[in-house]
Computed example of a mutant assay.
Amino acid sequence: MQQPYSHLKTMLWASPATKAYAVVSGGVIPGLRDLLGKSDVRDWDCLWRGALPPEKAARAPYLIELDPQGSFTDWLLQEAGQIYPDWGVIGLGPVSLMAMRDHSRSLLDVLLPDGQRHRWTWYDPVLWASLLPRLDALQLDAAYGPLTDWVVVRSSVWQWFTLSTGQLIVTPRECTPAAAA
């Protein structure tokens, strides 16, 4: 059953304690950092540490606390999803921006079997959606940290990945096409 965008958006804030954080790749959305500086988001921060040269800051991932009433939220979830379908993912939970930033940063590096650490783009929605169902219970706990849900937003389907009592529940929710909404 298809659901209108407004209903799916409301579901992001289904609990009064829940906050919605978008992890967005500056490498996918050009000019993201400048856009954030002018937007109505509640707060945001870069996931890469330290002072970055402009070209690196332009490609960096950003953590954005979405405002349920904000125009940036509507733009990201509707328009950007059409133009830049792989912009990132949304994490849901009763967590502060700083705690979410620390958790998101903890996911940036992976330890390979050869003992080397490598940075990876875990917030790539295709990668994240295919990886989460393959994780064991301990890995899921690490991937979720303080969160209850990860959401991958697509133009036609929003996928909820809910961690409930150690079990991953994947719920696709079809979205009414923007032209028909």
Rank of each mutant, 00 (worst) to 15 (best):
G37T: 08
R101V: 08
P16V: 11
I169P: 00
V28W: 01
C46A: 02
K19Y: 07
W87M: 11
W44N: 02
P177I: 15
W128E: 05
T73C: 12
S6I: 09
L163Q: 00
R119Q: 14
Q78H: 02
W150F: 14
R33H: 07
I29R: 03
H118T: 11
G88E: 12
R154F: 02
W44H: 15
I169V: 13
V157W: 00
L138M: 12
Q82L: 15
D74S: 09
S6M: 03
R101M: 12
G145K: 09
V153R: 01
G26V: 04
D109L: 14
A20R: 05
Q167T: 10
G88I: 12
A142G: 03
A57I: 00
P54G: 04
G115M: 09
A99W: 00
Q69P: 00
L76R: 00
L8Y: 01
A143E: 06
Y5H: 10
C46N: 03
F72H: 05
V89Q: 05
W48S: 04
G37F: 07
G81W: 03
T176V: 15
P30C: 07
P177N: 07
E55L: 08
K9V: 08
A58S: 06
L127A: 07
D40Q: 09
D43T: 08
D102S: 12
A178R: 12
L132M: 13
W75Q: 12
W13C: 08
L140W: 04
F72V: 07
Q116V: 15
L127Q: 10
R119H: 10
L108M: 13
C46M: 01
G50K: 13
V153W: 03
W128Q: 09
S130F: 03
S96Y: 08
R105E: 08
V152C: 10
L66F: 10
A99F: 03
S96A: 07
L140R: 07
L127D: 02
S130R: 11
E55M: 11
M100E: 03
P172I: 04
Q159Y: 02
S71L: 13
D141E: 15
V170L: 06
H7Q: 11
L63R: 00
M11H: 09
Q159G: 01
G91W: 03
G50H: 13
L77S: 01
V170Y: 00
L108A: 12
L147Y: 04
A51T: 13
D43V: 05
V151K: 02
A20I: 10
K9N: 02
E174G: 06
V41W: 09
Y84A: 07
P85Y: 05
T162D: 07
L52M: 13
S156Y: 08
F72N: 02
I83A: 01
L131C: 07
P172R: 06
P94N: 13
M11V: 01
G27V: 07
D40N: 12
G81T: 13
G50Y: 13
I83Y: 05
C46L: 00
T18W: 15
Q78A: 06
D149I: 04
G27W: 10
